[in-house]
Design a protein around this nucleic acid. Structure first.
Lengths: 203, 203
DNA sequence: ACCTGAACACCGTTCAAGT
DNA sequence: ACCTGAACACCGTTCAAGT
C-alpha cells in the first residue's frame, strides 16, 4: 500500500486506520517488527504523526489487544450448563489467542486486555460462575485463575519470537489437549469446592 | 561502587561479577533499567566489554532467572504426602518470584526459566506427581499447568513497571489467597482425575 | 487539526584495533 | 584474553514550526 499523495497533501489518518495498519504489520512481521517508525513508514507519514491519533505505543497495543477479543464467542449466560459454558468461553478465547499468536507476548506483558470486550467477557464469566455456585470473593478468584490459565497456556503453545531457541516436540494438538485438560482440572476443582460449601453454608 | 582503576588497568570482570551487578541494578531500579549500557556504566567498563563474559542480554537474563530459582525449597520427594509436597513446592516458587518481583515480567517473556535449577525442580515435581498417581503424558500436562498457574499468579500479584496504570485494591494477602485457592482447585482436579483413571486402568 | 523536521535520550550488538 | 572507540542500525517521544 504505497503512499499516493502529492507533496503537501494531507495523509488523512485516523485511529482506525492506524490500528488496521498495525494489525497488518503484526500479522506479516510479528510483534518485534511493530515499531512506531515501521508503522509510520507503512502509512507514508513521519513517526511523530501517529501521535495525533494514538496516545502512545502502549495504548495502541492495548486497543489491538481488546479488539482481538471481539472475536471470542461468549455463550448465552442463561441457556447452557454453566460449567460447559465456561469451558466453551475459555476455549474460544484460547483459539482466538492462537490465531493472533503474535499478540500473545503482549497479552503476557499487559497481563491480559482491559478494554470493553474484556469487560464484557468478564461479566459473562462471573454470571456463569454464579450459576455454578461460585459467588462473592471466590468468583473473582476463579475468574483470575481461569484467565491466567488460558493466557498462560496460549503462551506455552506459541513459538514466540522472544524465545526462538526453545526446542519442543509438542504439536499444536498436544498443546490444545494440555489446555483442555488443565481447564477440566480447574473446573472440576472449582465445582468440588462450590458444592462442598453448599453443605456448609455458615462456614 | 566506583571504578578505582588507573588508565590501562584491566577491569577484571567475570561472568559472576556481571551477574551480581545485574542483580543489584535490577533490585535497585527494576527490569526496565537493566540495559547493557547501564550495567557497563555501573561496572566502569564500556558496553561492549560485557560481551567478553556473556553471550547476549537474553542469556544474561536467563542466567539471572535460573539463579533465582536456587532459593526455592524443594521438598524431599519421598517423605511427604505428594499433593502437600507439590503445594509446598509451588508455594515456595511463588514466594521466591514475589521476592524478585522485578524479574517476573522476564519470566513471562521467557515462559519460565530453563537452567539447571528449573530442571531440578521439574524432576521433583514429576516424582511427586507420579506418587500422586499421575503418570505418562498426564504428568507433563500437570507439570506445565502448575507452572503456568504459579508464574501467572505471581505476574498478577506484581505491579510491574510495564503496567503502572492498572488500578487495584487487592492486597498482597488477597493475591496470596488467590494463588493458594487456584492451586488447591488444580490439585483437587488433578487428584480426582488420577483416582478416576485408577478405576479404569484399560481406558 | 494534522503533519513535518529536527532533535533528545536512549537501545543491543559488531568490528577493528590496542595491550 | 580482555577491553576500548567508533560505528551500525535501530528505538519512543517531544517540540517548534508550518499549512
Amino acid at each position: 500500500m504505497p503512499d499516493r499523495r502529492q507533496p503537501g497533501q494531507r495523509a488523512g489518518l485516523s485511529h482506525a486506520a492506524v490500528l488496521a495498519a498495525a494489525r497488518q504489520l503484526l500479522a506479516e512481521r510479528g510483534l518485534e517488527a511493530l515499531s512506531m517508525r515501521a508503522l509510520a513508514a507503512r502509512l507514508g507519514v513521519s513517526p511523530n504523526a501517529l501521535y495525533s491519533h494514538i496516545e502512545s505505543k502502549t495504548g495502541l497495543v492495548d486497543d489491538l489487544l481488546d479488539d482481538t477479543l471481539a472475536a471470542v464467542k461468549a455463550p448465552d449466560p442463561d441457556v447452557e450448563d454453566p460449567l460447559e459454558g465456561l469451558h466453551a468461553l475459555m476455549a474460544s478465547t484460547y483459539e482466538v489467542l492462537l490465531v493472533h499468536a503474535e499478540l500473545v507476548p503482549a497479552y503476557l506483558a499487559r497481563q491480559g486486555a482491559r478494554g470493553p470486550n474484556a469487560r464484557r467477557l468478564g461479566e459473562v464469566m462471573l454470571a456463569l460462575l454464579q450459576r455454578a455456585g461460585v459467588t462473592g470473593p471466590d468468583a473473582r478468584e476463579a475468574l483470575h485463575v481461569l484467565i491466567v490459565h488460558t493466557i498462560g497456556a496460549a503462551a506455552f503453545a506459541t513459538r514466540s519470537p522472544l524465545t526462538p531457541d526453545i526446542p519442543s516436540r509438542a504439536t499444536e494438538e498436544d498443546h490444545r489437549a494440555e489446555f483442555d485438560r488443565g481447564l477440566q482440572w480447574l473446573l472440576t476443582g472449582i465445582n468440588a469446592f462450590a458444592r462442598h460449601e453448599e453443605r456448609l453454608p455458615s462456614r
